[in-house]
């Protein structure tokens, strides 16, 4: 379970303070598929980054499975990013010169699993339908395929939470549908998915929509 309490993130530009997050309160239960929506600059990506410890809050707290994230040591932070959460970004964030297999294997190597990782990597690649392209360079793939590689990389360590920031932002509708199908499948398989999107259609695939504006949650609705 993820519990966000009084979360603030303040940026100072010149002499003016700007609150990207302003007292956000949110609880996400295990197994939920939460879509965080809102206009650009509403703070949705900042919220996701803080949950993934890619950013540090100015105030408030985020607790994941009872552990306060700001209390973690640098080593524990690395372990959290490696094993507890899996990231999917709008711009894929792959290693372009690595093969598909190399990209997906990377989190396993960083976790210290340096032996034969075929089983886990191949399973992840089969899940996203890219097993046949294992030995192609990531840069040679289409946008949709690259995003599927990114999802395979995010799930290869079997994390509890998938954090997706505009996963379909750079994709056409056909590829967007494929990506959303995969995320829905992952959620059905028991993963908690938190997805930031500004696309209403994508958000509708989630079972809960949280709407943000000016760093605050303005709506929180569950979809039947």
């Amino acid at each position: 379970m993820i519990s966000v309490k009084g979360l603030t993130k303040k940026y100072t530009v010149g002499k003016a303070d700007f609150f990207a997050l302003d007292g956000v309160e949110l609880v996400i239960a295990d197994g939920e598929f939460v879509a965080v929506t809102g206009k650009s600059g509403s703070g949705k990506s900042t919220l996701l980054n803080i949950i993934g410890i890619l950013d540090i809050p100015t105030g408030g707290s985020v607790t994941v499975n009872g552990v306060e994230l700001t209390s973690l040591t640098p080593k524990a932070v690395a372990a959290y990013r490696n094993k507890t959460v899996g990231f999917v970004f709008q711009s894929f964030y792959l290693e372009p010169s690595y093969t598909v297999y190399g990209n997906v294997e990377l989190p396993l190597i960083l976790a210290g699993k340096v032996g034969n990782n075929d089983e886990k990597v191949n399973a992840a690649l089969k899940m996203v339908g890219l097993f046949e392209k294992s030995w192609e360079k990531a840069r040679t793939l289409s946008g949709g395929e690259q995003q599927r590689v990114a999802i395979a990389r995010a799930i290869v360590n079997d994390p509890e939470y998938i954090l997706a920031d505009e996963p379909c932002g750079n994709l056409d509708s056909a590829n967007s549908k494929k990506i959303m199908d995969i995320l829905v499948d992952l959620n059905r398989a028991g993963k908690t998915v938190i997805m930031v999107t500004h696309d209403a259609e994508d958000a509708a695939r989630a079972n809960r929509i949280v709407t943000m504006s000016d760093g605050k949650i303005t709506a929180d609705e569950k979809i039947a």
Binding site: P74, A78, A79, R81, N82, Y93, E95, P107, L110
Partner: peptide, 15 residues
């Protein structure tokens, strides 16, 4: 950028 990528994927500073 690559260093950030590694950190996002769980690499420690020392690694």
């Amino acid at each position: 950028t690559q260093m950030c990528r590694f950190k996002v994927l769980g690499a420690t500073n020392t690694a």
